[in-house]
């Protein structure tokens, strides 16, 4: 087994130098999610202006995969419309389970190796689930 298949350089870079980490002063939406099997937690603050994700921050604690994935996600969706952002989160989740080609995923594509490690898939998708909660009006807000 090669660890490098999972821990690509890009991932370690996002883990060590997270982008958009922190909080927003007056977020439009704020969602916290827990991964109860490992105790990881993530909070997303999203600023929506005219239907666009004008700003986004993440906070919390977790493994390198969950933190890098959150960092990459914030970069991928910043400046996109809420619909586009939601599509990215969903595309990533099906990309990870091997059913879809990546679309507009940017650095997130580096996480593909995680699909070989089923127990870590939930780490990689934690931030994406939080974003879905924040942007999908059909989902209950926490």
């Amino acid at each position: 087994m090669n660890l490098d298949d999972m821990y690509r350089e890009t991932i370690l870079d996002h883990n060590q130098n997270p982008r958009n980490r922190g909080h927003l002063e007056n977020p439009t939406k704020s969602v916290g999610l827990l991964n109860p099997t490992c105790g990881d937690e993530i909070a997303l603050d999203v600023q929506l202006d005219a239907g666009k994700v004008s700003d986004i921050r993440f906070s919390g604690q977790g493994c390198s995969i969950s933190m890098a994935s959150a960092s990459m996600l914030t970069e991928a969706v910043k400046g996109k419309s809420a619909e586009e952002a939601l599509a990215i989160a969903r595309n990533f989740k099906s990309f990870l389970t091997g059913t879809t080609e990546p679309e507009n995923l940017g650095d997130l594509e580096a996480l593909h190796g995680v699909s070989q490690f089923p127990s870590r898939v939930k780490c990689a998708t934690l931030a994406h689930n939080a974003l879905e909660k924040a942007l999908d009006d059909n989902q209950p807000q926490t």
Partner: peptide, 28 residues
């Protein structure tokens, strides 16, 4: 280094350990 990442490196070396809150969140 997060415990999950520790456990992942360990596994690549054939070493099985546990990582997480060990069903003891108040203790964490």
């Amino acid at each position: 280094v997060h415990p999950h990442d520790v456990a992942q490196v360990f596994d690549s070396l054939g070493v099985a350990i546990r990582a997480g809150h060990h069903c003891a969140q108040p203790l964490m």
